[in-house]
């Protein structure tokens, strides 16, 4: 009886919360097990005749297709580039695969392609779309347009960037305001009738990561883009995989006033809301001011801030955790408890 309610896939299986984790670790992982997949990284590192390649894939569905600050085309390019650069590689080539619902206006499709082209130009570094595919499905079998993108890049020599390199005393830095993407999309759907000028933060972060690396030298330990499930999810995951505790200072987390406003209206927690252009950086304390300066100079990092610190674990029997230090100096442990964030009145 009890399982009765659990045997369909719910929206919350795709929101980056606990259910997403379970879908991956209990259903997908065991079915397809191998030594690379098991690491569950955003992009896989595969040996490739002497060089090391990073490989990633991601699917994009968003409604509406166009929103302030971006569109599905920009989103798919940025998402894939950002996944690649977190492993410390230089993105080289992307694939594009479209699933189109019958009846989509051709001009809409052209606009998406135009945006893909512009985003590639914005990203620079000679990143190219090198292959693709198109499928059209019957009306009602897809919502206008879905895009899948895969990407490949090459790991350059240099210090390894990986969650396993996170060290006690590292500073935790983010490149700007959180929750803008999720709240922008919610706002665009106009279901709740807010008027606010919130743009998605959707951006290709390869240049930012390059600037960070140049400024950091060997002091850069790990990078991760904070997308679905928000900043909280990334921190909790990295705390788990690095087996370190993190302290995060609530009053240091940058958030735009209007984004916070909509969150307050609806009773949502911005820490758990999606971003599409936010990189969380773990770096040695002594380099972090230099890194912060470099980030602030980059066009995608104006509001960068140091938001927390890595603490070691004293009691090895306890799970690593992320502690939020509130404005009152009290502590609370962040938990990956959220299913989809639903607006509430209570």
């Amino acid at each position: 009886m009890k399982d009765n309610k659990n045997n369909s896939i719910l929206l919350s299986h795709g929101d980056g919360g606990v259910k997403t984790g379970r879908l991956i670790s209990e259903i997908i992982g065991p079915a397809l097990k191998n030594n690379i997949l098991d690491r569950l990284e955003d992009s896989a590192i595969i040996p490739c005749r002497g060089a090391k390649a990073a490989f990633t894939t991601d699917s994009f569905v968003v409604s509406p297709l166009f929103f302030p600050g971006g569109d599905i085309g920009k989103l798919c390019v940025c998402g894939t580039i950002n996944d690649l650069v977190t492993s410390g590689c230089r993105p080289a080539a992307l694939s594009l695969s479209f699933i189109i619902e019958e009846g989509l206006d051709i001009n809409v499709f052209k606009k998406v392609l135009e945006s893909i082209k512009n985003t590639l130009e914005e990203a620079g570094e000679g990143i190219k779309i090198v292959t693709g595919d198109t499928k059209v499905v019957e009306k009602g079998n897809a919502d206008k347009l879905f895009i899948n993108t895969s990407g490949i890049g090459f790991i350059e020599d240099g210090p390894g960037i990986s969650p396993s390199n996170i060290k006690e005393g590292d500073n935790i830095i983010i490149n700007g305001n959180i929750a803008d993407h999720g709240i922008c999309i919610l706002n665009c759907r106009q279901e709740f009738g807010f008027k606010a000028d919130i743009k998605s933060d959707c951006a290709p972060l390869n240049s930012l990561v390059k600037d960070i690396k140049d400024a950091a030298g060997s002091g850069l330990h790990a990078l991760r883009d904070a997308t679905r499930g928000g900043l909280a999810r990334v921190l909790i995951e990295l705390s788990g995989s690095s087996k370190m505790n993190f302290d995060i200072y609530q009053d240091k987390i940058p958030i735009q006033r209007q984004t916070r406003g909509i969150c307050e209206f609806l009773g949502m927690d911005p820490l758990y809301i999606a971003n599409e252009g936010k990189m969380v950086v773990f770096a040695e304390e002594k380099n972090s001011i230099r890194i912060l300066d470099a980030m602030k100079k980059n066009r995608y990092g104006k509001h960068s801030a140091i938001i927390g610190r890595v603490k070691g674990i004293k009691d090895k029997n306890r799970n690593a955790s992320v502690t939020l230090i509130t404005e009152l100096g009290t502590k609370r442990v962040l938990d990956l408890h959220y299913s989809e964030q639903l607006p509430r009145i209570c």
Binding site: N319, S321, K331, R332, V333, D335, H337
Partner: peptide, 8 residues
Amino acid sequence: YFKYMAGI
């Protein structure tokens, strides 16, 4: 309690 107090 679960959300805000776990582990403290």
